[in-house]
Design a protein around this nucleic acid. Structure first.
Lengths: 290, 290
DNA sequence: TGATGTGAACTCCTTCACAGCG
DNA sequence: CGCTGTGAAGGAGTTCACATCA
């Protein structure tokens, strides 16, 4: 990343765990940069507003109030107005916003007036899904290159694009002016793939592999980790159940912060062994028809 | 949601936009609830630490310092120690943490000692990927039910599980004690699917469809939106390029916050029309072999 | 009148820096 | 002595509430 702190939880703590891979502190404190630095969190929401607005435009809605748009996007109107204020003042007091204008301004802000060609590396199930994902080309993100290791896949068209070998990443990505790389390989190959993408000039990476990628600071990595998402959900189930328990037996339920995990220490050990294959699970350890 | 605010950017602003679907404000201010409420952002990172720790355990590493673990997880050590402090004091000063103990405690905290059966709805490319994703069962999230509309898929086993009809969601999910539902349908069917899952008692939903789901407050939704992730990356490319421009021509680059978007207003209009299919794009609008 | 745009309060999270303990 | 655990300081993001203007 470049500046800004974290902002996790993607909405919330990371999410598959969407959230940008924490590249850590560093932050350029540079005093300059006035008001226009849009909070990371706001950027994510702008993308959501854009989707909602597009839907409205398709239904020939020409004007929306902050309240309407907020409800449709699942946020409160104050937050929405503040988010929009980061990109300028395009509303009309007493009336609302013109859908077309907002769409245009958000697209401009998000840099969507430029085309961003995407390369997908790792053509397993997930790679197939990405290559065929209709939401990309329709939103200005054409998938223009596919890569894999499997010799059987070379040249085979997936979603209309023939698969190239991973060794050709640098050449092909440069030729096709790829700006975004999606890594859908198993964990072990991910870092190497990443390095090649960076070498090819790719500065934005969407990482589906369950590893923390090491990249130069000018490269932006966003991570999507399904297992992490699941675990976050799991946490909420657990917490909820626990709260319920506490309500029936006020104080005395679970060991919350055991200074010295006694019984829970024992449970921990057993739990530890029931866990398996750590950093090595493939993002898509399957073939298209099992 | 239940308590807590947002926490976006998940790491950063949402991601596919991981981040939990903002269910908005409400927050139960209840003064009680002592120190043990783990920040949403910390929960997401705990899941990451768990993965890294598991990898270390597989390599027979028995002890780690906060510094080592922090580097491996891509965060700074102070943050890591604070995160771990939320779940208790399991380190040894002057030494570090025992890998096995930490794994057990994190698993306990995340509620991973309990099995969470997953249902996948929408067996398109993405659904296939999810059904076959090796990372789920190996982490205690067995995929135990699959649903789709397509009559041709009924009974066909995908990843070992036969596909059931969407109309049977309530019955099947109840029978198999599903606790997590993954919605990988096109946008239009998502809300209905969601309603049925909720009716079946599912309280955690991972939503891949590009819509904001409406759910009762006791249900936790996390959203993964690939298009949003892409747009966030796009924003960073744009900002970066713009910064570079500013460096060459100090002040005078792009219209940053045009009180009255003049030229940018014009550009906006054109940009608006180049956008297409709004909220209706399927998450996986493709068949397994195109 | 009615909805935007925004300063200011507030809450949540991160970072610092050091006391404390093995 | 080294590393953990944490109070306190500092930022970032959210919410409030109202001045402002079409």
């Amino acid at each position: 990343m470049t500046a800004h702190g974290e902002g996790v939880a993607d909405g919330d703590a990371g999410n598959p765990s969407t959230s940008r891979q924490s590249s850590e502190a560093v932050d350029e404190p540079e005093a300059r940069e006035r008001a226009r630095v849009i909070p990371e969190a706001a950027v994510a929401r702008l993308a959501v507003y854009l989707r909602v607005l597009s839907g409205m435009a398709d239904q020939d809605v020409s004007t929306v109030s902050s309240e309407e748009l907020a409800v449709a996007a699942g946020v409160n109107s104050a937050k929405l107005r503040k988010d929009l204020s980061y990109i300028g003042s395009y509303g009309t007091r007493g009336v609302g916003y013109e859908v077309a204008v907002l769409i245009g301004q958000i697209e401009r802000t998000l840099g969507l007036t430029r085309k961003h060609s995407v390369a997908v590396v790792g053509i397993g199930n997930l790679g197939h899904a990405l290559a065929n994902y209709g939401g990309f080309p329709s939103r200005g993100f054409p998938v223009s290159a596919l890569f894999d290791l499997d010799p059987d896949l070379m040249g085979v068209p997936v979603g209309g694009i023939p698969v190239d070998h991973i060794d050709d990443i640098v050449r092909v990505c440069t030729e096709r002016e790829i700006t975004i790389g999606a890594i859908a390989t198993p964990a072990k190959g991910a870092q190497e793939v990443c390095d090649r993408l960076v070498e090819a000039g790719v500065r934005c990476i969407l990482n589906f592999a369950p590893v923390v990628l090491q990249v130069p600071e000018e490269v932006e990595v966003r991570k999507v980790d399904l297992a992490v998402e699941m675990q976050i959900l799991s946490f909420h189930v657990a917490r909820r159940g626990q709260e319920a328990t506490e309500l029936s037996e006020p104080e005395a339920a679970g060991p919350e912060k055991p200074e010295n995990g006694a019984e829970s220490g024992g449970a921990a050990m057993t739990a530890a062994d029931h866990r398996m294959n750590a950093g090595g699970d493939p993002v898509d350890g399957m073939v298209v028809r099992p």
